[in-house]
Design a protein around this nucleic acid. Structure first.
Lengths: 205, 205
DNA sequence: GTCTATAGCCGGATAGAC
DNA sequence: GTCTATCCGGCTATAGAC
């Protein structure tokens, strides 16, 4: 491979740097609070570079929206392959949540900003909803064997909600949400599934 | 009581209207996106009124922070008094969460904005953390009898996290989070408490 | 494709009339 | 105490050099 980058490689690299910087600044300052100039300079460029890659601030934000990294819980399906036993698998899952929690902070902040932006643009809400299906599906697949009569998708939604809700509280008060609580709360939820009657189904005799 | 308002009453009324309008606009647009002019006109006034009551935009935001309405879950302690049985009490709690969920949207959005604002001002984070203790305590008191060996405060944290996380997901995708899920997930969590060993305590033989 | 310089606008804050 | 008019700084976006 060449030591010097080709034109298209250099261009792609600049674009990537701009998007990365944009993700940081939008997460820290919000869409309205972020300035194109700060994004550019944090990427090691000037505004001109931004406007050569994107038509404006909105376009940059939308591009970031589209290319935003996947949810940390998307890859959760690979956990149980490492251990056969269900109990240890869920313990591993709980530890995984606790480990991801703090790193997850930036992701969730930016996603909150996407949410605000999308709230006044219904067609974007749909795209956000579509993106949020991936982690739900991954978690649902993981927990399906232990969902008893319950809908795995509903259980996954609850787990993700619990996770995100704990992450938010932890940002405000680390002491109130010790990292062990992620695994502990998950255990409570999973243990309760077996003890609880499933939904009544119309097609069940 | 007089038909005409006294000077101080009129002043207080103006202040209240400004704060209410500020709450709406800050929630919709974020701190940076909100304009003082829009806040004033939505309150039926002009910028002059704002600067006679507050020293600036920041001061207005901080005043709103201090006087922000209590968390909907603060008053949750009054629920069980209406029914003796534990099961029906928690069913009532679940229904309460579902009922509050959609109305809660504006509250949680504004609180998210407080969070962002506070993230770069550590002393504010403490005040936010202090405010979030009230609902935790109220919920902890309610669920304490059913927490088995677990810390009621931790259980309350999990319940509130679950609630907030579901509310957020519901804003993006109502179909993914049907209102029954609030009560259902709560039931899973509570049922799991009894089935799960409590924390090892150093002072327990 | 990227930089520099600048146009043009918007919004926070102030001054003075009432 | 509130309104109107205005100043001023910062920001988006564009034009033109390289």
């Amino acid at each position: 491979m060449p030591l010097r980058l080709s034109r298209s490689q250099a261009k792609a690299r600049t674009r990537k740097r701009l998007l990365t910087a944009a993700g940081e600044v939008f997460a820290e300052q919000g869409f309205a609070g972020a300035s194109v100039d700060e994004i550019a300079s944090r990427a090691g460029h000037t505004v001109g570079a931004v406007y050569s890659h994107f038509t404006g601030k909105d376009d940059l934000f939308l591009a970031l929206f589209d290319e935003h990294a996947a949810h940390p819980l998307d890859g959760v399906g690979e956990i149980p392959s490492q251990c056969e036993d269900d109990e240890t698998a869920f313990a591993a899952f709980g530890d995984y949540l606790a480990g991801v929690a703090d790193r997850h902070t930036a992701w969730s902040t930016l996603e909150m900003e996407f949410l605000r932006y999308a709230l006044t643009r219904p067609e974007l809400l749909d795209r956000l909803a579509a993106r949020w299906w991936a982690p739900r599906t991954a978690v649902a697949r993981l927990v399906a064997p232990r969902c008893a009569a319950h809908d795995p998708a509903a259980v996954a939604t609850a787990i993700i909600g619990l996770f995100e809700g704990l992450v938010t509280q932890r940002r405000v008060d680390r002491a109130a949400v010790p990292s062990e609580l992620f695994a502990e709360a998950l255990r409570w939820l999973m243990a309760g599934l077996a003890r609880t009657p499933g939904r009544a189904r119309a097609d069940t005799p």
